[in-house]
């Protein structure tokens, strides 16, 4: 019964010309909804939220950010054939302050990681991240390299992963629609859904303890 109602909610999200059945990762979103619920966040509370989310999901301005090959497919997405202007995403901003979503197109390496992190920090809330291509997801073909970051989610939180090497522009449009569905679940009058920071915090605590122990040993 519980699951049924969850399904209904994900189903209720309206994306033009895309039905619930057309999307593949429904289960994931349902789990996401459930997780939010369990943590005490109610979903779809008011009409005002609906309006805000409608605005936000329909006007996702990407940051022009590309490190390698996938950037070319991002350009294709902006050009005549695939035309992401149809969805209102063509206002690519060069300044991170004005952008809503950063497409991490391409490999992130050690030297680039702090730059990407700073870029993410410079963006204004609400901000979203899409890992575009296998390099950004996991290191991809360069997994065995000494200088590659194994997935951009080691540096910044990611909302949507789009696999491929490089993914087709169509895949990117699909990913953007998934992002739109995710945005439509947000609630404005409380905190926007944050990634679960617990494991990071625990890891940090452990590190600290370790350091303390190490310091103690030194003494």
């Amino acid at each position: 019964m519980e699951e049924r109602s969850l399904k209904m909610e994900v189903k209720d999200i309206y994306i033009k010309n895309m039905k619930y059945e057309d999307f593949k990762e429904n289960e994931y979103l349902e789990e996401y909804v459930k997780e939010l619920r369990d943590n005490g966040v109610s979903i779809f509370v008011s009409k005002i939220d609906d309006i805000i989310n409608w605005g936000r999901s329909n006007s996702v301005w990407p940051l022009t950010f590309a490190t390698s090959c996938c950037g070319i497919e991002f350009m294709c997405l902006g050009a005549a054939r695939y035309d992401f202007a149809r969805f209102g995403w063509e206002v690519t901003r060069n300044s991170p302050r004005q952008a809503d979503v950063v497409f991490v197109c391409g490999t992130i390496v050690h030297k680039m990681a702090p730059v990407l992190k700073r870029l993410y920090d410079q963006m204004a809330e609400p901000k979203y991240v899409m890992a575009f291509g296998s390099c950004a997801i996991s290191g991809g073909p360069f997994k065995s390299s000494y200088h590659t970051v194994m997935g951009v989610d080691q540096v910044i939180p990611v909302d949507v992963y789009i696999p491929g090497c490089p993914p087709r522009p169509d895949a990117m449009i699909y990913g953007m629609m998934q992002l739109a569905r995710k945005i439509k679940m947000q609630e404005f009058f409380r905190l926007p859904s944050q990634p679960d920071m617990k494991p990071y915090a625990e890891a940090e605590q452990k590190e600290l303890k370790k350091e303390e122990v190490a310091d103690g040993n030194d003494e």
Partner: peptide
């Protein structure tokens, strides 16, 4: 209009 709704509620840094 959607753009404006979004931009009105964006964070001021």
């Amino acid at each position: 209009v959607a753009d404006m709704v979004k931009i009105l509620l964006k964070e001021l840094i």
